[in-house]
């Protein structure tokens, strides 16, 4: 039963929604289903939040290595929750001045805005900026001319890296806009690095990307069908209790 009912619900919903894609009258049902999912996901956050608290409290009470981080997490969690729910420092909206909580929670100057601007914002930007460092160590380690394919990949990487900056113009900008002797239509300037980089993006990357996308689309269709038909039930857990 634990598996049969969810399977039945997903099969019925799935096939009905596939059908509605062709019936203009019911085409909105997909949006409604999405809204239902968002509602469920929002309620499920209580589960997640509860689990987060439980795990961190366990770490603190057992004084596990790194329990200090757990304490920081908990403090940050409660401060943010309080500041957001209580709308600390938020002015009432102009439309409803009599209600203290009617303002926007992210209003400039409010406590939540302050947390966002001076804690969340620099922390997020720092994490994203780490990519620049990791990409350099990955380039150092992984881009090696181990075989023909890897060598081609490497050369193309160099062309695109140079072509996407002023270095490309610097290095090849002097190539004249004159036809190459013995051939019509091709000029020396066609070998400008920015131009070559654009050709690589348009004529090689795009078709490759299209092929991968078609493969992925078929994979999505087949996986979805397996789920709807109940051929693959591993995500549903077991009928028995452990």
């Amino acid at each position: 039963m634990k598996r049969t009912i969810p399977l039945f619900i997903s099969a019925v919903t799935g096939f009905v929604l596939i059908g509605t894609a062709f019936i203009p009258q019911f085409v909105d049902w997909g949006n409604d289903a999405m809204a239902w999912f968002n509602l469920l996901a929002a309620f499920a956050f209580i589960l997640g939040g509860g689990n987060l608290l439980k795990m961190q409290l366990q770490k603190i009470s057992a004084q596990q290595p790194g329990w200090g981080y757990a304490a920081v997490t908990l403090i940050a969690f409660f401060i943010t929750l309080y500041v957001g729910l209580a709308k600390v420092g938020v002015n009432p909206s102009v439309k409803f001045p009599e209600f203290a909580w009617s303002g926007e929670f992210q209003e400039e100057g409010s406590a939540f805005w302050w947390l966002f601007e001076y804690i969340f914002y620099p922390l997020s930007a720092t994490m994203f900026a780490l990519l620049a460092f990791y990409i350099s160590s990955a380039a150092f380690r992984a881009f090696r001319a181990k075989n023909t394919e890897a060598t081609i990949l490497l050369l193309i990487a160099v062309i695109v890296l140079l072509g996407r900056t002023y270095a490309g113009v610097w290095l090849t900008g002097w190539l004249p806009n004159e036809p190459i002797i013995g051939s019509s239509g091709i000029t020396y300037s066609d070998f400008h690095l920015p131009h070559l980089s654009q050709i690589i993006m348009d004529d090689f990357t795009t078709p490759g990307m299209r092929a991968i996308t078609i493969g992925i689309a078929l994979g999505v269709a087949s996986t979805s069908l397996k789920v709807l038909l109940g051929v693959d039930r591993s995500y549903l857990g077991s009928d028995q209790e452990a």
Binding site: A41, L47, Y235, S238
Partner: peptide, 17 residues
Amino acid sequence: RSLVMTTARDTVEAAYL
């Protein structure tokens, strides 16, 4: 994601079983 956690728990429990 919370829902992924609950799904993963069911799945892993079934796999261990």
